[in-house]
Amino acid sequence: MSPRSSAIERLASPRPRPVEVLAWLLPALAFFLVPDNLALGVSIMTYAVAVLALDLVLGYAGIVSLGHAAFFGVGAYTAGLLAVQGWKEPLTGMLLAGAVSLALGFLASFLVVRGKDLTRLMVTLGIGLVVYELANRLSSVTGGMDGLSGFEIGPIFGVFSFDLYGRTAWWYVYGVLILVFVLLRLVVSSPFGLSLRAIREGVSRMPALGASVDHRLRTAFTLSAGVTGIAGGLLAQTTQFVGIDSLSVGRSADFLVMLVLGGTGRLYGALIGTTVFMIAHDYLADMNPVYWEFWMGLLLMAVVLFARGGVVGAGRRLLQTVKTKFARAAP
């Protein structure tokens, strides 16, 4: 096989390597090893779904979004409100949450793809702020600052009911995370996913190849919004509470930090970044939140200056150095 076709093969193959399958068993191992902290595992995997979705627009399509919490929160409120109204079936509730966010993302995508980097950033920020203000004003529906609570979720498949320890919630979110990962993996290795990367690398060349840039960016943004909505739905169902901060710009920024910490444009970066961020946050929870912010800011600056590509990028570079050293040492 020529090197070029093998490169294309590598870029475009969604087929999992054995290492990956083993890696996906790690969370299941954690379930049995740390059974007393399942809630943390559930929230890590819930946020991981949202951060994966963000990776699709940021890492692959190259759109910096500071408004993804809007889709996350809308999904959460959709799932929460459905349950309040008596729709207790979780799977359809989650899918509807995703569908509502998908529709909102579709509308928003027309605004987002206009303009360049900075304008895009501001428009996504503006969409986030508008949705937040709306939820805040419609407090009769959303519960305003108090949030939405006091709803119950029915059993999954009508069999597995949500328990106090979060065991059912854990397997539920784990399953959804795997499905979402597989879906996104298929998307980014499809011709569509490859064209997104091409747009990111050289936006002016794509129209010359006869590809509609705006159309592809809109599709990616819409899909990402839908998946983020699913994450929001999961949050509402597993915690049985929806707070207005799930819509806040701070939450959007958290997603961005998690993704950058792990590394963009790799999907696995999203998973690792979310895990590191959430565990650090959990350990430092006793600390004054202000000082958490200080270290967060410092960490962000350090990642940008010294560790482009986040944890995954740094790991890959380390592996590369070791490999070349060994290659040199060997005759």
Partner: peptide
């Protein structure tokens, strides 16, 4: 890239808020 600029200056804002608080 613009993303790096956004992230870096945002980190600067977060740290400065905490410093002012302190």
């Amino acid at each position: 890239p613009h993303l790096d600029q956004v992230l870096f200056t945002f980190g600067f804002v977060l740290s400065s808020i905490a410093a002012a608080h302190y």
